[in-house]
Simulated assay, not measured.
Amino acid sequence: MSTTVTRTRRHELDHLRVLATLGVILLHVAAIVVVAFKDTRPDLLSQFNLGNLANTGGRFAVNCFFMTSGALLLDPVRRFVLRPQFLRVALPTLTWIVVYTLLNIALNDSGRPGVRGALKDPLSLEPTELVRALLAGPAVYHLWFVYVLLGIYLMVPLLRALTDRPEPERQRLLLWFLTLWLVAGLLPRWGAWLLGERFPVLYAMPLEALPVGYVGLFVLGFAISHYRDRLRVPSLGWAALAAAGFVWTFTDVWWAARDGESRVFAAYDNLLPPVLMLSIGVFGFFATRAWGPGPVWPLVLRTSELSFRIYLVHIAVLHTLRVTTDLGPLLSERPLVGIPAMFTAVVVISWVVSWLLDLVRPLRRWV
């Protein structure tokens, strides 16, 4: 039976988008702790692992953003027009690049470091370097996600030609696409992670022409969502997959830090098996649930609508709190208290700023 979704709002994906928004804030807060204590050869019960635990808990977020976008934008019953969809992401991003540039100038003038990224110290850049920083980026470190998303948007009209096909041709084409992604994009990456230089990359140049990177996650999100009835995976199965990925990510990062290895952060890679298992498990748990057009809490719906703006804003809030308030030292010195305190502050302030900006109708298109 075909499982094409209806035109109604997917409230289960609203819940997932809110959870992913909280997750990405959590991982950026916790990453500060992980970096601060990565060279301490930590025991299981350690400040490093407090940060590692929280960081791992948020690692599903970015992959779920990609998969959620794919589930919605590749749905053949939903209308997609490239130009407005592209501008809906590109224009606010450009606005916030300007905001981050001005913020970094102000921080640098006060003797504080700017937000990490190509525009960390914008006044030190020559005009050609400034253009390169904007185009090659990321201008600010968390905006890499937006750069990738915009690139995928340019491919959506081609991908829609695949998902618009009738069954069973659509299913065969999706399976073929995801197989090519696995062979060309994932297996070489996994082999290099597990075996290092011992892993031979055969026929590397032909593989580079095949689907690689996050476009595969985009298509995978559509496939899981569209064929959710055929998959017949119970909620417990998705939860178990996510739990296995969580444990694997946490332990691999901890063991690398404990043994003093240089690859401490390798298992945090979004396209390696640990985080893929975690994020696919979380996405499948939500995307295959039959919540459909049912009611959703107003706060959840509003936060889902504000999620992209919150993503753009939250690093400015986090960095400013870190370098100008006592929350910064608290986070680095007492993570058991600092992580929840900083996380709560960033969530609340980012939500309020995003909500206030949304109230100004002329600004909505630009921020």
Results as ranks from 00 to 15, higher is better:
223 A>F: 09
81 V>L: 08
12 E>P: 06
205 M>H: 06
173 L>E: 14
91 L>C: 03
41 R>G: 09
152 I>A: 07
338 G>V: 02
153 Y>F: 15
106 A>C: 04
73 L>F: 05
116 R>N: 11
335 P>G: 06
111 G>V: 10
269 D>R: 03
28 H>M: 08
139 A>T: 00
219 V>C: 15
86 F>W: 08
257 A>P: 04
339 I>S: 06
219 V>W: 03
364 R>D: 10
112 R>G: 01
195 L>S: 05
348 V>L: 13
219 V>M: 15
38 K>E: 01
107 L>W: 01
142 H>Q: 14
347 V>Y: 14
34 V>W: 05
147 Y>W: 05
165 R>I: 10
156 V>D: 02
335 P>F: 02
289 R>H: 09
165 R>V: 09
163 T>D: 01
29 V>A: 12
72 L>F: 05
90 A>T: 13
139 A>V: 00
358 D>F: 07
282 V>D: 01
236 L>F: 08
348 V>M: 11
301 L>V: 14
213 G>S: 12
27 L>Y: 12
92 P>I: 05
257 A>I: 03
120 K>I: 12
299 L>P: 04
9 R>Q: 07
212 V>C: 13
260 G>I: 06
51 G>K: 04
25 I>F: 12
272 L>T: 03
72 L>S: 03
258 R>S: 10
69 S>A: 10
358 D>R: 08
109 D>F: 08
214 Y>W: 10
278 L>A: 08
11 H>W: 11
114 G>C: 10
235 S>M: 12
120 K>M: 15
199 F>T: 10
350 S>Y: 15
45 L>N: 12
81 V>K: 01
199 F>G: 09
3 T>A: 14
122 P>C: 05
210 L>T: 10
274 P>I: 11
160 R>G: 13
46 S>A: 07
12 E>M: 06
308 F>R: 00
358 D>P: 05
333 E>V: 09
107 L>K: 01
155 M>H: 11
163 T>R: 05
100 Y>W: 01
329 P>Y: 12
52 N>M: 06
16 L>N: 02
206 P>M: 06
212 V>K: 11
244 A>L: 15
155 M>W: 15
20 A>V: 13
203 Y>C: 05
309 R>F: 06
317 V>Y: 13
262 S>H: 11
196 G>T: 02
4 T>Y: 14
121 D>N: 04
153 Y>G: 10
63 N>S: 14
171 Q>H: 11
117 G>H: 02
310 I>R: 01
93 T>H: 10
74 L>T: 03
145 F>D: 07
243 A>T: 15
26 L>A: 14
214 Y>G: 08
74 L>K: 06
154 L>T: 00
142 H>K: 07
356 L>P: 08
313 V>T: 12
6 T>F: 13
163 T>C: 10
310 I>P: 05
212 V>L: 13
99 V>C: 03
109 D>C: 06
345 A>F: 13
46 S>T: 00
175 L>W: 05
308 F>G: 02
70 G>L: 07
144 W>R: 00
92 P>K: 02
67 M>S: 07
150 L>Y: 00
25 I>K: 11
